[in-house]
Design a protein around this nucleic acid. Structure first.
Lengths: 223, 223
DNA sequence: CGTTGATTGTAATCCAGGCGACAGATTCCA
DNA sequence: TGGAATCTGTCGCCTGGATTACAATCAACG
């Protein structure tokens, strides 16, 4: 199954080849930035391998993670309508292989391929849907519920094998905090609670869902 | 100036006429729903006059407002990738005049007009940007800051005349609470504070910004 | 193989804002 | 014009989670 947001995976063989022929490839190490807020919007990027996070920073330096990107995804499309420039920053979570091309080149490419544009609308729309859901969580759920929902979602998205995936979720407590809008200490405390009652198993940096059913019981809003 | 999200306003005369020729018009009174979450996605809508709100509901019945729609905007494009069906509900804030057409018809229309698809990407992207900003506010700001930011944004968007607009913001405290994720009472309390110090003037249901500069001082994160 | 930096664990304090409970104001509509 | 319904204003209590402050682990690299 191809994920909704897997742009490259949803192009047909030929179109993909034509597109990739116009790109140049490069590599980044862990924790590097592909671009930052307010950088000029002159390139579009395609993630070939690795994982990235799209984020923003608050005035006082807190990071807020908007979503993760997986291989096959496009990013770097969006320009702020006001001050021009990037609206978000993109940071690698691990070593990544990326293909890039000029924004103008990509626009030309789209101009003659309406189907691809429509696909892009779908992809951006699905990100919109994700953020809309997150916003509802923020408005309605307490910290524990938000974290439980995050873990369930991530697990589904990450190793979408559906089977009894015991693979750890490769996130630090800090990242979980940045995703759910809580303090790092609060994340640690709540993860500890969830582990103690048996829903999670954790061994330093290796958080994984032990009891899927039990965890999902915490995703029902408490507030 | 045409707003970024004003779809109809950004089409050229001819394209707009062709599009509108395929629509049928109808009217709704205040507080009616154009469609609700999980309704089938078989129509696309264009707001001709009035104002709408796009929202979701929490399991316990709380409303979360995602964004407002103004004349010229398209809505009803997005389908949930999982369970199919609408991802959001759309409710009128006042009597509205709306044009609608079938989703398939609209897809065909787009198929032969790549420029319009690209415009749509921009529009969906700008909503994505708005939600991303809201998410950052939720994660980083306290209630007072969120409300102050909301009022500033609304004022800019609403009566974008830029001049010393003394027009009231036509929202109830409940709506402000639904937009900022606080209790209705909290919204009332904070609005009262802002009014007492002279940033706002309020006379039952008629909230307007008295001192723009003073209000914007509250938009600097306190936390 | 030990030092350094990142990550995790825990505990005490404190307050913003949720929640419940009304009382008054205003608008709407019969 | 007179309810009814919807909005607004104000309390007090109480809890979730921010904040501050360390200590303990782990991993990575010279």
């Amino acid at each position: 199954m191809v994920a909704t947001t897997d742009f490259l995976g949803r192009l047909d063989e030929e179109t993909r080849a034509e597109l990739m022929a116009q790109t140049t490839r490069y590599r980044l190490g862990k924790g590097e930035f592909v671009f930052c807020v307010s950088d000029p919007v002159d390139t579009v990027h395609f993630l070939l391998s690795g994982r990235i996070k799209t984020c923003k920073f608050t005035p006082d330096g807190r990071e807020v993670i908007l979503w993760f990107g997986f291989p096959g995804e496009v990013f770097g499309l969006i320009q702020s309508p006001h001050h021009k420039g990037r609206m978000v920053s993109v940071e690698t979570c691990e070593p990544c292989e990326i293909a890039k091309m000029s924004s103008n080149g990509f626009q030309d490419f789209l101009g003659s391929r309406p189907k691809v544009s429509q696909l892009l609308v779908q992809i951006v729309a699905s990100r919109l849907g994700m953020l809309a859901n997150r916003l509802v969580y923020f408005a309605a759920d307490d910290a524990e519920t938000r974290i439980a929902k995050l873990l369930v979602n991530l697990d589904a998205r990450y190793h979408n094998s559906g089977s009894g995936s015991e693979q750890p979720i490769g996130l630090t407590h800090q990242e979980i905090a940045d995703l759910t809008g809580v303090q790092r200490q609060t994340a640690t405390r709540i993860l500890g609670r969830l582990a103690k009652c048996g829903a999670l198993s954790m061994r330093y940096r290796r958080i994984s869902i032990r009891d899927h059913e039990l965890l999902s019981r915490f995703t029902a809003s408490q507030r």
